[in-house]
Design a binder for these strands. Sequence first.
RNA 1: GGUGCUGUAGUUAAGUUGGUUAUAACGCCGGCCUGUCACGCCGGAGGCCGCGGGUUCGAGUCCCGUCAGCACCGCCA
Length: 597
Amino acid sequence: MKPRTHTCGSLRAEHVGQTVTLHGWVSGLRDKKTIFVVLRDRYGTVQVTLDEKCPEDLMAIGKQLALEYTVEVQGLVRLRHAPNDKMETGAIEIEPASITILSKTKPLPFKIDSLKEKPTEEVRLKYRYLDLRQSQLQKTMRIRHKTALVVRNYLDDQGFYEIETPILNRSTPEGARDYLVPSRVHPGEWYALPQSPQIFKQILMIGGMDRYFQLCRCFRDEDLRADRQPEFTQIDIEMSFVTQDMIIELSNGMIRKVWKDVIGVDVGDIPSITYAEAIDRFGVDNPDLRFGMELFTADWQGTEFGVIGNALASGGVARGFIVKGGAEVSNSLFKTHKKKGDGDWLAFVKKYRLGGLLYGKLENGSWSGPLSKVEPELLTTIEGVEDGDLVLIGAGPANHVNTAMGRLRAHVARQRALIPEDAFAFVWVTDFPAFEHDEDNDRWVSVHHPFTQPIEEHIEWLGTERMGDILSDAYDIVCNGYEIGGGSIRIHNSEVQAQVFKALGLSEEEAKNKFGFLIDALQYGAPPHGGLAMGFDRWTMLLSGTENIRDVIAFPKTSKAQDLMADAPNTVAKEQLEELFVANTVSDEEESSSDSE
RNA sequence: GGUGCUGUAGUUAAGUUGGUUAUAACGCCGGCCUGUCACGCCGGAGGCCGCGGGUUCGAGUCCCGUCAGCACCGCCA
């Protein structure tokens, strides 16, 4: 192999007359009297032309080529007879002096960057090495790399150290399920892979590192979604002697720099709203601010209209939003069809445990639909309804109504194309409740995590009937409806920390057992500190314009957490298990049946 | 743990009310074509219709189960 002199995408008219050596894959082949070979590498494509001037032995090699062969081409850059404006290198072509086939390919499972058909994701994941050649992944890997680089440089400029924390860790059975690793030298004992480096980064602050960050892999053994993988990467940040405002300011600077440097977008100012405001205006704590259609509250105490009246009487709420010009939508969206099931919008809210969806259409001054039965003087309290509009209302328990109507708001906006393309709407959500009551187990649990600082004035409510009113010094950053980061000011006072554990029903012994080393460390001059973790994969998704997290990860797993290429997870030899003192409780029969196709 | 959609050639899809030889496009192989660029033309090979069971004279099609992919609910401090 000769050294490469140029990349395929780099050649222009100014190179005409130069002899170049290129390496790449055959991405296009037009075998006529003249053979046209399109050569592709990471940097672009260029046409290699074998015409009547070509010696016969070279034509013979040209005849052997097939798509995705890896080749070396040495030749002369010349102007084309027929330039191609659609190609960056379309002004020129290569007149080859030699072509070497570096490696051949078996028949391909799919054509790279085919315009006609896209392979299913299952096929793409199995042949990920071919999928990676496609422009989509070439682009997202570039964006991912560039984002990481900008983040590292930005944080370095701000005085941060990147410090690694352990992958093999102790299990803390709070929150998500841990991935466990058996210890060979300590029979019966296990490491856990980190769900996040939370405790270690706090200890780095106690250790005087002042400003820490890490692009770190985190692991959670939970069921997956389009935007969730079992292992994912976060930009983990912790700072000493900071306030919430300082962390938000630093984060805003980082977001602006990344969006500008990676995709050329000016983010501008990023607003903040409180959790309470987010729920009030949007029903959810990760609102999409790219469009309006905010929720209103139908506070119609005493209405004769049964569904809403009953919901309010039993302590629930009625909330909804106006769909501008929505009166023309089909009523079948709201109906239960005997055979086909529920209409789209009705079925949508039912997923969120809402019993039904009320609607009213205002046309030519008169209401139709279920809401037409509501007292007219109450209907007029809905602000901003005009002729031709549709009003949607959900009624029931507050948490169900807020979630259902908040999600429906986004669903409707998407269906009706109300979301501007290429827009980014960032927002900080602050003042989260510190604790929520777990009805199933009748106990209080942390909304964020138990090291989150409750706001000063609320600390005295710990362990009282006002637990649910305690707000925390925590904040989430949301973009386009995705939670892309979150953090908090941490408790640095070991007495407050002890009060929190107590309020959560953790005995001193249990707390010590779970978080002992942090509790100890907090007693040795802990600085006030706080930080946050940014979802690096979700950042990359937004920057790439994809809604699928697998599109921004080189080797992702399926929704059942399998790697279809590497075929992981897999069974291991009995001897391996014995060495680790692990018993396999799955019978061989079960194993083989689940393995077969 | 649950719900929905999908599974037919290497790939992407079509396949009607259950009906006899399962289609097409791309890719692959062979041939033709003076400059193509989603090249074009002619010919060819290629199928466990995801898997298992059932209903039926007959199943790609209907029913049950199962596996896989995707999306969602629960879950994800």
